[in-house]
Write a protein that binds this DNA or RNA. Structure first.
Lengths: 257, 257
DNA sequence: GTTGAATCGATCATAATCGATCATAATGTA
DNA sequence: TACATTATGATCGATTATGATCGATTCAAC
């Protein structure tokens, strides 16, 4: 058996059983413990599993290269709907910031047929999705590339965003509430998001309804930063009017604007 | 049996069994290992399978969106060799510029197992290839993304490179000669290349031998910019010494330094 | 905490495989 | 037939994978 296929086999086994031991693999493949250890070490540096004493366990995010495979599936239909609605706000010749994250990634599906756009993003999946469309010009925000997020972050990235100005920014958040503003689970992402919002004329927050009036741990901006909140279904009349009192339009389908 | 039908047989076998070894094919077809290896190498360059130590595995159906299509590439083996040689110059903790282009892309294969590197690049395929390796930190040079080159260019990109400093730069060119220096077919690429070279302590030009003492239309730097020229086969003694007179080492295999 | 067993990783020696090269055989062609 | 082209096999130094050893580390049971 070829070495590489043994490693593939190992991953297949791990796909079905949460954890595995060096011993069991040693017997399974008829090779020495040392060889198994070497395989596991290698697979770990490639991010496919996490080495433990005596064996290995599943890695949290075993996603393929630039797709968000698994996470994309969660609430997929909701996100699709949100993005379809959001795409209605994109007009010819717009310059647009697109935030990173699984929701925003889907937006790129809906803008492929728009004419003459400039997209400014720090998201590699977005670039990957739009790179072959000649009608769309892409500016990628450089910086430190973070593997599991497939995007770039850091001081350089933030500074670069500040050098651009966009007509519209499409951003995400892990929570939004009138009292605490926008919040995120990840600080470095939040800093990028805020920077994009600050440098755009009009800010659209794409956010599924479960996150509305919820807060995540890092608060990074007041609600006044956003102009439009797009979500997949109607929210309570009470909340709608409270947001509107703060000059934020809430959009849940393409008819009402 | 005719050669071509043996190759077809090999693909049939691979269709059913994930991977195959040189050994098993040797017995199956009653030919020498060398012949099997040649078959596999050929099938690989045509994109039908992926060569691994000891045999071959199925070609992945879904390749990374950012990787170059290897099968249609000319001089693939030469480029592989050049990059294998070049990788020998990479040391632990190095900060490295990697230029874009099909040759330099292959370098990323050979640096995956290096420990602790920082790669600074404007090449999306390079990022795609290395993004999952936790031992390698990646800084992406932002800027205008050019689809068919899968890299970013422009004033922003050039300015950003100037903000960094690397121990080594690995660059490419479409021509190099003592009299006219480095030349390129593409001005915007050349500007990036030059900028990387200017901001690195040591500059390695990776260049197949057909481009040596040839010139392309845009001359962008004197030969004095480079320190080492790596190519796939020995060049004339005369040329070798002439380059050495200009303080440029010519490397064609791993021994001589 | 102490102890013993299991596991780990570093290192070295060995084995398998690799690709480059050259010689030979098979095939095609004038 | 003579010659060029192509495929194959054999050899060899280089590279890579593997296995064995051993002191260090980790774990679990006491």
């Amino acid at each position: 058996m070829v070495q590489e296929s043994r490693k593939k086999e190992i991953l297949k086994i791990l796909d079905e059983q949460e954890s595995l031991s060096v011993q069991e693999l040693e017997g399974r493949f008829k090779v020495s413990q040392m060889t198994i250890r070497r395989d596991l070490t290698d697979l770990e540096t490639r991010g496919y599993l996490i080495r433990k004493y005596g064996g290995a366990v599943k890695s949290e995010a075993v996603e393929s290269l630039f797709s968000f495979n698994k996470r994309v599936e969660e609430n997929g239909r909701q996100k699709e709907k949100i993005c379809r609605i959001a795409s209605g706000f994109i007009e010819e010749d717009d310059v647009i910031f697109i935030d990173c994250g699984t929701t925003l990634f889907r937006l790129s599906h809906y803008i492929q047929d728009k004419t003459r756009l400039r997209i400014i993003t720090n998201s590699l999946p977005v670039v990957s999705e739009l790179i072959n469309y000649s009608n769309i010009k892409i500016t990628f925000i450089g910086g430190d590339v973070v593997g599991d997020r497939k995007a770039s972050y850091g001081d350089t990235a933030e500074r670069l965003i500040g050098e651009y100005h966009a007509d519209k920014a499409f951003i995400g958040a892990d929570g939004v509430s009138l009292s605490k503003g926008l919040s995120s689970y990840d600080e470095k992402e939040a800093r990028i998001t805020r920077k994009m919002a600050e440098n755009a004329d009009k800010v659209f927050l794409l956010c599924d309804s479960s996150k509305i009036e919820k807060n995540s741990f890092y608060r990074f901006a007041p609600v006044s930063l956003i102009n439009v909140l797009i979500t997949e279904r109607k929210i309570s009349v009470e909340n709608t009017s409270r947001y509107q009192d703060n000059d934020i339009s809430i959009i849940t389908n393409t008819e009402e604007v």
